[in-house]
Design a binder for these strands. Structure first.
Length: 713
DNA sequence: TCAATCCGTATC
DNA sequence: ATACGGATTGAC
């Protein structure tokens, strides 16, 4: 039966194949005769092509990022491409009358398609770049985020570089395989058990809170070594280039430079493809990289690790906006690999992994934490005079902070000063307790509407559902007055520099170049979050200035985000037994500040997750942000609701148009769709299908869909 | 009556 | 997207 399809189709569809060309005989023939010497050997003989005798059908994912074309299409494999047309190779096929790129997903005996099948026109290269495991992962990720396979696969497979592909491949690296010394992980409960699981090749899942001062890259390298012991590969994803360098150094020291590759976005196309190909060909099985490395085709992957999963660079800015942790979770699940989510802090998402018992918490005992942590002091907000006058605050560095800095410098240690980056949006909070002001209907954040003046700022309005708040009442303390947040200032840091005139002040980030590392000598280092330089032995003190301003963004993750940044800076400070001190300018009564003082990221994450469950925000629920012109948003939301009326809709509300110079700014809106977590897949499917319907009927205005968006400010 | 044009639909 | 078919409109 199947061979009959192949044989009959092979002969019979020859004319059909040339149909499009015949459709415009005069033009086509004329141009061809006038232009090049003649058609290629392949197309000249296409009428005589015969189909491969075994598995003559190729299922192809075409490179068309349109939701209604987001499925494989079947083609016939001609005999002369039979050998090359293996799963994973890039192909060219005729699609909607044009030659397009695609990936061959699989070969089958039969096709479901009842119409005529076109030929696989050519195999671009015999390199099977798209590993089956990665193809499946791309599909899963696309489905999770209501996106299309073509978009995800572009993140997973770098552009081909023919010259690099033709190079003589490097020899498979010989890696010394020995189980790691468990001492480093011995400081943590379940740490050694996790290593043992890796050595045993088991798919353990863990959420790890690194101790202050921890050489986290060393621990990750040990975990990788454990995976290699079980003859499995390892992949580590970190937020930025600096962390890639740190992690790469740790891995290369252990396995040899030739056994490790670093995959980052800023490599040139050739080097990028060269390294990536070394991984795909199995020459290298230890990979470190930034977010798109989450898809790296590591052979027999055994360990998937992500550092600092709350960092926003782990969120891909291109559709469908996947997040590294989510990609690795899906991958660990499908590949039977271990997962390690590590950081000084803990996200609400990681907390959910722990609470659902899918992942084990790797944490140190309280006593161990206390011994490793610096002494943390919170000052400020009880001093109401300071709270009322931001300028006075910026001009006056509190005495405790001065004293901590003085002691550190006197002991010969550098002082870290963390200042928020500029560009914080105005937001509203309770004037008495500083809790973010929330909408009484949907618990969204209150802000001032755009376009208001200083004298007439307009009514406080929910940024989610758009309802105006006439009579605010704080859910926490019952206060009725609101205050607006202000932008953080670096003046305080300059003030510090003036206060210690004989001490050098260096800057990292926030306009200044980011410093990787500073000398262990008495100087002041002013850094923006994420740009704190490392220092041997640790800082003697850290001053976290304008902590209250960090809590001032109209973003639901501000608290988690602030704690993450504070912990990251504080982790660079010496233990309190060595005099290490952290001073944060924020009210010690605020729970998130308390979490820093007590060094309790897990406790905070539990509170945070419970809070998100209360207000109905991810990860406690699944949410989708739908953005576009008012008509397009309404259209998409209607389609989704028609399929599933039980989906809760918040808004739409007007949002800032994206900055596109030269473009006429058009009105844009955002609606939020909310469902229980168990309905997350269905929500994504309905959104995908609605998008498919719209793009299929050529709806003019595109709609941007983001699942569990990081910010809905 | 024929052709230019507009929709709607399928794309292996 | 783009290409095609069938319906629709318009001018002779």
């Amino acid at each position: 039966m199947s061979s009959a399809v192949g044989a009959v189709g092979g002969v019979g569809s020859g004319p059909a194949e040339t149909g499009p060309t015949l459709g415009a005989p005069a033009r086509g023939a004329g141009r061809r005769a006038a232009g090049r010497r003649g058609p290629s050997a392949a197309s000249r003989t296409r009428g005589e092509w015969t189909a491969a005798s075994v598995a003559p059908i190729a299922r192809v994912a075409v490179d068309m990022p349109l939701p209604h074309l987001d499925r494989p299409f079947d083609y016939r494999v001609p005999t002369h491409l039979d050998e090359q047309a293996q799963p994973g190779v890039r192909v060219r096929v005729r699609f909607a009358g044009r030659l397009v790129d695609g990936f061959l997903l699989e070969r089958t005996e039969e096709s479901e398609h009842t119409g005529r099948l076109a030929w696989v026109d050519k195999v671009v290269s015999a390199e099977p770049v798209l590993a089956p495991e990665v193809a499946a992962l791309c599909r899963t990720v696309a489905d999770r985020y209501a996106g299309v396979f073509a978009d995800v696969v572009r993140m997973a497979v770098p552009p081909r570089h023919a010259r690099v592909e033709a190079e003589v491949p490097a020899d498979r690296a010989v890696v010394p395989v020995e189980p790691p010394d468990p001492a480093g992980w011995g400081r943590y409960q379940r740490g050694v058990a996790f290593l043992d699981a890796l050595v045993g090749g088991r798919a353990a899942h863990a959420v790890w809170q690194a101790l202050p001062g921890e050489a986290w890259a060393e621990r990750f390298a040990e975990a990788a070594a454990a995976a290699l012991t079980a003859d499995r590969g390892a992949l580590v994803v970190v937020p930025d280039q600096r962390d890639v360098d740190t992690m790469h150094a740790a891995l290369a020291a252990r396995f040899g430079a030739g056994a490790v590759v670093a995959l980052t976005a800023d490599l040139g196309p050739a080097e990028r493809y060269r390294r990536w190909l070394a991984v795909r060909r199995g020459a290298v099985r230890v990979v470190v990289g930034t977010r798109s490395a989450a898809f790296a085709p590591v052979e027999r992957i055994g360990l998937l690790a992500v550092w600092d999963d709350g960092d926003d660079s782990h969120s891909e800015p291109r559709a469908p906006y996947p997040q590294v942790r989510d990609v690795l979770i899906a991958r660990a699940h499908a590949a039977g690999a271990a997962l390690l989510v590590g950081g000084f802090s803990r996200t609400a998402e990681a907390q959910l992994l722990v609470e659902s018992t899918w992942a084990a918490a790797i944490v140190a005992d309280r006593a161990v934490v206390r011994a490793a942590a610096p002494r943390v002091t919170a000052i400020g907000e009880t001093d109401t005079q300071l709270a009322r006058d931001p300028d006075a605050r910026a001009a006056r560095v509190p005495g405790v902070a001065f004293e901590a800095a003085r002691q550190s410098l006197a002991a010969g240690h550098p002082v870290l000063v963390q200042v928020p980056r500029a560009g914080y949006l105005p937001w509203l909070s309770c004037a008495s307790c500083r809790e973010s002001a929330r909408c009484r209907h949907c618990a969204g954040p209150l802000g001032l509407p755009r376009g208001g003046s200083e004298h007439d700022p307009g009514l406080p309005t929910c940024r989610w559902c758009g309802r105006a708040e006439v009579t605010f009442r704080c859910g926490g303390c019952g206060g009725r007055r609101l205050r607006a947040g202000v932008v953080g200032s670096r003046r305080t840091a300059e003030e510090l520099g003036r206060a210690f005139p004989q001490v050098a002040v260096r800057s990292s980030g926030g306009g200044a170049p980011v410093l990787d590392r500073v000398k262990a000598k008495p100087e002041i280092v002013v850094a923006t979050p994420g740009a704190e330089p490392a220092v041997d032995g640790g800082y003697g003190a850290a001053l976290l200035l304008d902590g209250w301003a960090m809590l001032s963004r109209a973003d639901l993750r501000v608290q988690e985000e602030a704690l993450r940044k504070w912990l990251a800076a504080s982790a660079l400070v010496r233990p309190h037994a060595e005099g290490g001190r952290v001073v944060i300018v924020a009210d010690s009564g605020i729970p998130v500040v308390q979490a820093l003082v007590r060094w309790d990221p897990a406790g905070f994450a539990a509170e945070e997750l419970a809070g998100r469950a209360e207000v109905g925000f991810p990860p406690a629920v699944r949410m989708a942000a739908v953005e576009g012109t008012p008509g397009a948003v309404a259209d998409l939301v209607d389609l989704v609701l028609a399929a599933e009326p039980r989906i809760e809709v918040l808004g739409p509300v007007e949002i800032d148009p994206p900055d596109e110079p030269g473009e006429v700014p058009e009105v844009r809106e955002r609606a939020l769709l909310r469902v229980p977590r168990s309905e997350g897949r269905a929500l994504a499917r309905h959104l995908h299908d609605a998008q498919a319907l719209r793009s299929g009927r050529r709806a003019p205005d595109p709609v941007r869909v983001r699942l569990d968006p990081a910010e809905v400010g």
